[in-house]
């Protein structure tokens, strides 16, 4: 039995194939899906920011809703650092508005990502308090951080 196993090249190939399927395919899939992950991630951030702005404009914002949404954005800003691996830029058949310059100017891009993360953190911190003016100012600063990066590194809509 043992000899058969050791000597069976078919078994060895099957084993390697199984390893490939289990181990490598998900990695490849994750790589090709990173654009989708990125788009979905920013969509969540956009939706959370809409919830915050809706609350702030209502005149009677619910602190809990502000906190949940602000935390969601802050979590997103931690995820964002793995959303732009090399090779996930514009390519034929890939639906992305990320500009090539992102990968050409990594330091500048990271500085804008850091700014986004800092402003999201500041908003999350502000929503824990009751200072409405501070929350408003933090939300405005966060919006400006979004814009600062989008105007440079995101293609205009068609």
């Amino acid at each position: 039995m043992q000899g058969n196993f050791r000597g069976g090249s078919t078994s060895r190939w099957l084993g390697a194939a199984l390893l490939w399927v289990l181990g490598v395919t998900p990695l490849l899939a994750a790589d090709s899906n990173i654009v989708k992950t990125r788009v979905a991630g920013y969509r969540e951030i956009g939706a959370a920011f809409k919830a915050i702005n809706d609350q702030l404009r209502s005149g009677t914002p619910q602190p809990y809703l502000l906190q949940v949404s602000a935390r969601e954005i802050a979590n997103g800003t931690r995820e964002q650092y793995r959303w732009f691996p090399a090779g996930s830029g514009p390519a034929p058949g890939v639906k992305t508005r990320a500009k090539v310059a992102i990968w050409g100017q990594p330091a500048k891009f990271k500085a804008l990502q850091d700014n986004f993360a800092a402003k999201a953190g500041a908003l999350a911190a502000a929503t824990k308090g009751k200072d409405a003016a501070r929350i408003q100012a933090a939300a405005k600063a966060l919006g400006a951080a979004c814009k600062a990066c989008h105007t440079v590194y995101r293609e205009e809509e068609d």
């Binding site: 939706a47 919830a51 702005n53 809706d54 209502s58 919006g143 979004c146 814009k147 989008h150």
Partner: peptide, 12 residues
């Protein structure tokens, strides 16, 4: 808008 930043008065 896509960023949840700009919205009409009834979008809430």
């Amino acid at each position: 808008d896509l960023d949840g930043l700009e919205s009409g008065p009834l979008s809430y």
